[in-house]
């Protein structure tokens, strides 16, 4: 009744007031929606960004093939979803790997989803990814045992390094035993940043602590739950230690004061595997990618030289067929 009355006989001032009120409410709500929208948008950026960053790499593929496909469409193009890790993406490997793959197999539009190893495996499980390139052996084994994978092959490895502040409070510089270095950090209770994001790096770190027979806990052992880049920034800002893959560290080195303190231990090597998924939509594409990436051509001409021009050293060492 009241609402009706107001609609029927508002005075001039009242209606202006009501209109202003309605308008402001709409603005307030719109702002709320925008704010929520922003939040949501940012949450998805990690995947969205990888989708866009891969766009140049696919379009940068030999123009002849992309032209051919657009003008004549000889073969139907199909999407091939490759789930991999942010550290692989950050290294820039896909910018050369995907175009090279497309040169041989122009019929696939490769979409790289760069996430943590944990999520990559989850995407393989749900069938949202056709093929995986990951580096978390224990979790991969579980994935295979659970029957989500079809085939799994070794591809290459890179290595991890322990980085820390130049002051090096735990005195680990120059050590060649990663477990001993971690023991020294734990004994000194020196600030250490763990990614804690179930990534390959996080899994590797956990095996190293296990090897050192230490369950890290205490105020000095902090968890970021974030990617390698962010964790390096945090460790740098707080003057703490962390385990990093060499590629990400080298690419960020310019903005960091952290130094490489421990390297070269075999335990720090990081094995990558390619896995085809049982629930894949594009089974043929997954198989083609797996067979291509372990081929001599991809191994010796694409993976081995990658990074040499920029860092003077290859970031990945191909070893398909040499290890399990």
């Amino acid at each position: 009744m009241i609402g009706r009355k107001s609609r029927v006989a508002p005075t001039g001032n009242q209606s202006a007031w009501l209109w202003a009120l309605a308008l402001m409410l709409v603005v307030a709500l719109a702002l709320g929606v925008v704010a929520v929208g922003c939040g949501g948008g940012e949450e998805t950026t990690s995947t969205a960004v990888s989708a866009t960053t891969l766009a140049p790499s696919t379009t940068a593929a030999p123009t002849s093939t992309s032209e051919a496909s657009t003008s004549t469409s000889v073969a139907e193009k199909s999407d091939l979803i490759l789930a991999s890790t942010t550290s692989t993406q950050d290294s820039g490997l896909f910018d050369v790997l995907i175009p090279a793959f497309n040169k041989v197999y122009p019929q696939y539009t490769v979409k790289v989803v760069a996430v943590g190893s944990g999520e990559a495996l989850k995407l393989g499980e749900t069938g949202d990814a056709d093929v995986l390139l990951v580096h978390s052996p224990a979790a991969e084994q579980t994935f295979m045992d659970d029957g989500f994978g079809v085939d799994r092959k070794a591809v290459m490895y890179n290595d991890f390094i322990i980085v820390g502040p130049p002051s090096d409070p735990a005195k680990i510089k120059g050590m060649t035993d990663a477990a001993a270095a971690l023991t020294a950090i734990a004994n000194a209770k020196a600030l250490y940043y763990n990614r804690g994001d179930k990534s390959g790096t996080d899994a590797k770190e956990k095996t190293l602590w296990k090897a050192a027979n230490i369950t890290p806990s205490g105020d000095w052992y902090q968890v970021t739950g974030q990617g390698m880049g962010e964790t390096l920034t945090i460790a740098d800002q707080k003057g703490g230690y962390t385990l990093a893959d060499r590629g990400t560290f080298l690419s960020k080195k310019g903005s960091l004061q952290l130094e490489i303190l421990v390297e070269g231990d075999k335990a720090l090597f990081n094995q990558y595997h390619v896995i085809t998924c049982k629930n894949a939509k594009n089974v043929q594409g997954g198989n083609d990618f797996m067979n291509w990436i372990v081929s001599a051509d991809a191994q010796q001409n694409i993976i081995a030289p990658f990074g040499k021009d920029k860092y003077g050293q290859g970031l990945f060492i191909p070893n398909a067929g040499q290890v399990e």
Partner: peptide, 15 residues
């Protein structure tokens, strides 16, 4: 609902 800024300056840390 903000996420980018808090993540950058907060770090999402836990002990």
């Amino acid at each position: 609902s903000e996420v980018g800024a808090v993540n950058m300056v907060g770090g999402n840390l836990s002990v």
